[in-house]
């Protein structure tokens, strides 16, 4: 089976949250970029499928500025992905426009054999959750987001997965090629071994240059402001002598002060 995983470099959890000098985006000066969250699960799921179906190949693709994008591609290689493709992005792109990202990634994915394109359900920073279906649309493949319990039936060559709705869990089956946004992998993401980390540092990355991409309309959605909420000042403590007194006080506050009592 030919699997492509698309991942996005996101600033790690220790990145200090503050606006960049222009006030438009998160200040990424000095930030460390990592493979994280749903993307990490997508890579894990791809590797689980590779383990389950002998002869499979997992290719990882990422779109973004070179330095940080290389980091996540190497992290994915260290985990066991077979090849990595860096899709160059325009130097000033905020890549807030999902069309641009989807089209750039689609251009790279089209060059690779693929039965399954796996993406995290949403990125760890902007959390928009649109890319899986946008990418599917750009590729002309069926696409679903929020997939769980993904399996591959090798005899029928069918992917089976759950897709959550408000009322329950839909069961779907789909032959490849298909794009899936993954809610959860079959197990916790593995940790790369030291030797594989060192090997991944020396691996050659494939590149798709700007010249090979369709014109990207970066003006469509642009970042205008990045704001932090006023710091929460800590809880207002409810003082009480009996549980009943605590309950009465809390209900009154929710009603009269916070005005959220139903």
């Amino acid at each position: 089976m030919e699997i492509v995983v698309c991942v996005k470099p996101v600033p790690d959890a220790e990145t200090k949250l503050r606006p960049a000098p222009d006030g438009r985006t998160l200040d990424l000066e000095g930030a460390k970029f990592v493979l994280a969250g749903y993307d990490e699960s997508a890579v894990e799921q791809a590797l689980l499928l590779k383990d389950a179906v002998p002869g499979s190949t997992v290719r990882v693709v990422s779109f973004g500025p070179p330095g940080r994008t290389e980091e996540v591609l190497r992290a994915a290689l260290a985990l066991g992905c077979d090849t990595a493709t860096l899709v160059e992005s325009p130097p000033l792109a905020h890549s807030a426009d999902v069309r641009s990202v989807a089209r750039a990634l689609a251009a790279a994915v089209k060059k690779l054999p693929h039965d399954l394109v796996l993406v995290g359900k949403q990125s760890g920073d902007s959390e928009a959750g649109m890319l899986p279906t946008a990418l599917a649309q750009a590729l002309g493949h069926p696409g679903f987001n929020g997939a769980v319990e993904l399996k591959f039936d090798p005899t029928q060559k069918l992917f089976t997965f759950g897709r959550a709705s408000e009322a329950g869990l839909e069961r779907w089956e789909c032959p490849g090629p298909v794009v899936l946004g993954l809610q959860q992998a079959g197990n916790d993401p593995r940790t790369a071994k030291l030797q594989n980390i060192l090997k991944s540092r020396r691996a050659t990355l494939d590149k798709v240059s700007l010249a090979e991409l369709p014109t990207l309309d970066v003006a469509g959605a642009t970042a205008e402001a990045f704001q932090l909420p006023p710091p929460r000042t800590g809880a207002k403590w409810i003082e009480y002598k009996t549980p009943e007194e605590a309950a009465t006080k809390l209900v009154r506050l929710l009603k009269e002060e916070a005005k959220v009592f139903p």
Partner: peptide, 23 residues
């Protein structure tokens, strides 16, 4: 911006060639 709403938003962004945002 439910799960399905986001699926539609992503597909519509490309199919309708529109700028898009969720949440």
């Amino acid at each position: 911006s439910t799960g399905f709403g986001r699926e539609l938003a992503g597909a519509l962004a490309v199919a309708w060639d529109a700028a898009a945002a969720t949440s």
